[in-house]
Design a protein around this nucleic acid. Sequence first.
DNA 1: CTAAGGACCTGTCGGC
DNA 2: TGCCGACAGGTCCTTA
Length: 270
Amino acid sequence: MPELPEVETTCRGIAPHVEHQRVTRLEVRQPRLRWPIPEQLAHWVEGDEVQRVERRAKYLLLSFSRGQMIVHLGMSGSLRILPQGTVPGKHDHVDLVLASGQLLRLTDPRRFGAVLWQENGTEHSLLAHLGPEPLSEEFSAEYLQTACKGRRTAIKALIMNAQVVVGVGNIYANEALYRAGIDPRRAAGRISAERLSVLVETIKTVLAAAIEQGGTTLRDFVGGDGKPGYFKQVLDVYGRGGEPCHGCGELLAEVRLGQRSTVFCRHCQR
DNA sequence: CTAAGGACCTGTCGGC
DNA sequence: TGCCGACAGGTCCTTA
C-alpha cells in the first residue's frame, strides 16, 4: 500500500497525536511480521514519552529517550489513531497505547511490515545503506548521472533501488518515467545526461504532488487522520495498461519488469 | 561488484 | 456458487 507519499501522509497525520505523549503500554498481538518484533520493545518504550515522529525513506521513526522505534508498513500496512478500547480486528497486530486516551494501531494483513528498534548511537542495518531522499537537494541530476554510469540494469529498476534513491515505488516509478518520456526498460547507462536530469525533476514533481494530495488512494488507504488520499485521479499510466495514452491516444503497453507491473507508452517513451 | 529471481503473507479478482 | 491461479503498494536475501 504505502509508497513514500503515503508514509509521509501517515507521518504528518499521526505526529500531532503521538509526539510528547507518554506510552502507557505496548500491546503486541502478533509479533511475527517481516522480522519478529523485539521482545524487549515494550520494556524500552513503556513509561517513556515519544519525543518526535519522523520519516526516513519509507520508515517511520518514533524517538524515545533511549532509542528509536522503527516502523515499516510493508505492502499492506497502515497506522491509525483510535480511541482506547477500540476492538482490534484480525490484522491489528500492534497498539501503542498513549496517556492521552488514544492509541496508535498498526494494521498489516500481509505482514510484510516491521517494527524494530535502534538504540541511541547505533544505526539499524536496514537504514545504514539508504540512498538520498528524492526531495532533497542531494538527489540531483549530477547524482543520478553518476549512479547510472555503466549500469546495464533497466532504468526503472535503478530508480526503485533504495541504495540509489529511497522512496520511489512501483506507482511513482511508472509515473515519473512516463512524464520524462523514458522507456522503463532502457539500460540506465544508455540515457543521456539531459534526459536523466528531466527524470530527476519528474520524480520530484510526481512525489511532491502526491504528498500534497495526501497520497495515492488504492483500495482503502487512509492516512493517520483517517482521510483518504486523492492522487489516484491523476495517474497517467499506473493501472491503465491497454487504455489510451493521455498524450497521444495510443494504447498503453503493460509488461513485467523485475516481477513488477510496468505500464508505458511505446510512442511517447523511448 | 552487478543483475536476476525467490522469498515472505494474506486478500481479492477474473476465469472456468 | 465454488475453486484455482494470478496478482497486489516493498525490499531483503540468495544465487549466478
